[in-house]
Every structure is written in C-alpha cells, then in structure tokens.
Amino acid sequence: MAEFSQAAIIGVSLGAQYALLALGFTLIFGILGVVNFAHGGFYMLGGYVAYSCVAYAGLPYPLAVLVAVIATGALGWIFELYLLERMVDDHLATLMLTLGLYLVMSTGLLTIFGPLSMEFAFPVKGAMHLGPIYVPRENLIVLAICLTTIAALWLVLYRTDLGRGLRALADDRAIAMAQGLRPKLLFPLAFAIATALAGLTGALVTPILSLSPGVGDPVLATSFLTVILGGLGSLEGAALAAFVVGVVEAFSSVYFGGSIGALVLFVLVLLLLVFRPTGLLGRTVRGA
C-alpha cells in the first residue's frame, strides 16, 4: 500500500512536469501550427541558466529560476519574431528551423559546459513522512509550483482577453485575423510563453533529475508522446495525457523496473492511434 501511494505521488509530480512541457508544446502547435523541435532545448537551457546563476553569480535558487524563465522566454520571443515568423505558413520549413535551433542550442551548451553532468542540487533537502509514505520535499515543492503555473496558465487562457485571442488564433487563424487579432504580436508572445514554460520546467526539474547536454531528447520524446496521446492541439488533452504518462511511468518503474514502462506506453499510444486517432480529447486529424 505504501509502495502504491508512493508510486502515485511520484506519478502525479512527473505528470505535472510533463504537463508544463506538453502545454507549451501544444500551445505552439495549436496557435502557430509549428512543431517545436527546440522544446527540449529550452528545457535544457532553463536548467543551465538556473545552474549558472546559482553557481557563478551566487543568486539564490528562486531568483535563478526566475532568470531562467525570463531568458528562455526572451530567446523564444526573438527566435519567433526574427526567424520563425518569415516561414510560419510552411510547416516543413518551421520544423527544420526549430530543429536547426535545437542543434545549435545543444552544441552551444555542450561547448560552454562540457559533456559531463553538472553538480546542480535542489536547495531543499529531506523528506516528509505522511504515515508510512515517504515523500521528498523537493518533489512536493516542484509539484506545487507546477500546479500553480498550470492554474495560472489556465486563468490567462480562459479568463482574459489575451487568452481568448490566443485560443481564437488556435481555432481558426483566418477567422481570428479577420476579427482584427494581431498575429504579429500574439505569435511571438505565444511562443515565448511556451518556451518560458519549458525553461521553468528545466530550471525546476534538472536539479532533481540531472543536467547534461543530452537531457533534451528524452524530454522532447515525452512531450511528443503526451501530445499524441492527448490529441494534437488540445490543451485539456495535453494536460490529461501528461498525468497519464507520468502515472504509467511511475507505476511501471516501481513494479517492473527499467524501461518497460516507456515501451508499454508507446505501444498503448500506437493502439490509441488505431482506435481513436484524435487522441483522448483532440479533434480533426485527417488531411495535410
């Protein structure tokens, strides 16, 4: 029973991290129609910026996280405005641009920080004992921040004019533009929000997991799996799927060990594509 609850808590906190990543990814896809291959890169960058702020500038960790969020958001804004924007209607070109950016980012980080893992530890240690269950404090803090951020994102998207504009662009760009929405402003903004979310996740999670130039790829793969499961472009679907992925991963690693969980998950997602190609909550999938 303790084992079960522990797996559940790990699963939920993994799910919250994946949700932040997948929400950003889905936001970019839904609004710009762009598959962001650099998403894992922004996660890494967030981690390294936070690390540098703590290790070299001596900033307290919370401030370092904030700097990481701002830096990844700013880079996302600039990249969208000056490069992606020119090609935004060409799916293949935008894919290649984000892939190119990812390669440049990961090589840049490799050049600056070297191939080895960084000594980057979460500042809060210890664990809480809730009856027989043992929960690391760092996980709880990360979980709390992730859930707060998801709630804030939800408020912005569903309770403000800005959010309504963004969702209208995601629904139908032509109609939204006819109604006077300005993609010139909203596109970079959406991209920056999404990359800042990836940066935030990286800054929060890499001290707990690990920080090395190779961590971007698995993050990207998990984001992909999550958005396929949730339905491309569906925010609710992405959030729901993230928790499914997190919980399945946690339980399979507790009960089976190794990477069987990831395999099972992939097979499940493929089967889902057969029987329900729209994902859990997605809409149209056919066509170009």
Binding site: V35, H91, I228, L232, F266, L273, P277, V285, R286, A288
Partner: peptide
C-alpha cells in the same frame, strides 16, 4: 498504414518517438 492516414505532423512525432523506443 496507421500513421500516414493522419496529418503529416503525426508522422514526424511518431517516427521521432520510434527512434527513442
């Protein structure tokens, strides 16, 4: 037969995940 009936984006995502798997 499974993936290519869907939008091109699914192809990219699925082949990427496949390479990890």
């Amino acid at each position: 037969a499974l993936v290519l009936r869907l939008r091109g984006t699914y192809f990219v995502l699925v082949t990427f995940v496949l390479s990890q798997i």
